[in-house]
Design a protein around this nucleic acid. Sequence first.
DNA 1: TATTGTTATACTCTATAACTATA
DNA 2: TATAGTTATAGAGTATAACAATA
Lengths: 152, 152
Amino acid sequence: MPRSSSSVRSFAREVALAAESLVRVFDRAEDWAIPRISPSQVKVLGLLRYRGQMNLSALADEIGAIPSSASRLCDRLEAAGLIAREVPPDNRRAVTLSLTKEARRRLESFDDARRGDFTPVLERMSPQARGALLEGLLAFGIAAQELRELPA
Amino acid sequence: MPRSSSSVRSFAREVALAAESLVRVFDRAEDWAIPRISPSQVKVLGLLRYRGQMNLSALADEIGAIPSSASRLCDRLEAAGLIAREVPPDNRRAVTLSLTKEARRRLESFDDARRGDFTPVLERMSPQARGALLEGLLAFGIAAQELRELPA
DNA sequence: TATTGTTATACTCTATAACTATA
DNA sequence: TATAGTTATAGAGTATAACAATA
């Protein structure tokens, strides 16, 4: 732990509070989905794209649910043709979950909706502030990924 | 609409994609809540703090639900002692919703949990990138608020 | 014996539609 | 007559607990 950790910890509070506005704009895209898809289902699809294939326990862990709930969620996503369950031959008790092509299309339409939600806000920002935001978000994403890969 | 709008629109796609990692860390705080509180309820409480008092229709609009669903949500939040419904004398068909002190305490514990989730990621970022992130998020928040106040 | 995942049950969340009350 | 909000019903989401199958 670096010596700066205590000051970073108080800095983290400012970032967490400042992030709220952006998170609200980010989440708005769900409202435009046609046909309507539940927040839980969006969370699962987004996670599978973000992280790639996962088994059910890992998925449950990431979305903050228990395996039972995740299993039921996957029942409906599978029935809707948005995910595929596959049993790998080398470990027949671990189910591999993956996105269908239709799910990827749906996710892309979310991206489009989000772009539309972000545009008017970004237009009101100075070019410098826009640049800072993108730089900061990209660095955050890299740091988060490094952190995930550490204990592995 | 500024002349730069088309380039901002493509920039917006980058921002929207880069934001995903931060949103995931932001949302993680819900998992630490004791006692457990549903994502929908968290959304309502966070919104009421962010925007201040609202009536039921406005709330429903903001969380992407219909008044009926929002009313049921408020039933449970009221029963849990987290929000108060009040009928203003000047317009007796508009219900004013507000947070209780207990709700504010719960929200502060979310803030603490978030700070804890953000800290290790921020620690892995350069001071410059951290600064850029906070600067960008603050500017975004201001722009979003200005935008909301425009049509009013 | 521990791990991975699925069902049985009960409660919460949500939308559609029908309703009450206020403006 | 239009608006703000609340109920009736039914389907989706979730946790607890009990279970089956694989390692």
